[in-house]
Amino acid sequence: MRKKIIVMAVALLVGLITFLLAETLLIKVQSTSLRKRPEFYAPVVAKLYYGQKVTKLAEEGGWVQVRTDDCLVGWLHSSAVETKKIRLLAMNQTLKTEASSQEVALAGKGFTKDLEKAFREKNKGLNYAQVEKMLRIKVTLSELKRFLREGKLGEWGRPK
């Protein structure tokens, strides 16, 4: 009986520690795809957006396995997430003693749209119209896949 309780308490403690250390990651790009496997060609599980929160489950070759708020599990390329740890236990009166840069920017204190607007008012004659046009150029993943295959690139270029 005593042993059982010890085991239970230890298990609970381990579980709690794991829970508290679970890394919460933030999506740092405008949008990205949660994929079934750690590769760009894998089927898409869900679309995720800037500032969305996910929990890290595992890591493999530049990819992280995560769980979303609605319990979807999949893989994200590590360049799409902010990896700075959020110290849950450090929260008290001051809310948090550590915050990532992204959190600060999300709170609206960064080089963002408003600052660009003020800069543009002072600097007329810059070509933002062409920048917008440039941003509209999109190469879809299926188009890129075809391009790689035709050009014997990527996995289609590796010696058999």
């Binding site: 840069s101 920017a105 960064g110 963002t112 660009e116 070509n127 933002y128 062409q130 920048v131 440039m134």
Partner: peptide
């Protein structure tokens, strides 16, 4: 941040263009 980098980049690009 990435978002800030994007906004900085937009204005640099507009200057180049």
């Amino acid at each position: 941040t990435e978002e800030e980098e994007y906004y900085i980049g937009r204005s640099v690009a507009a200057t180049i263009l």
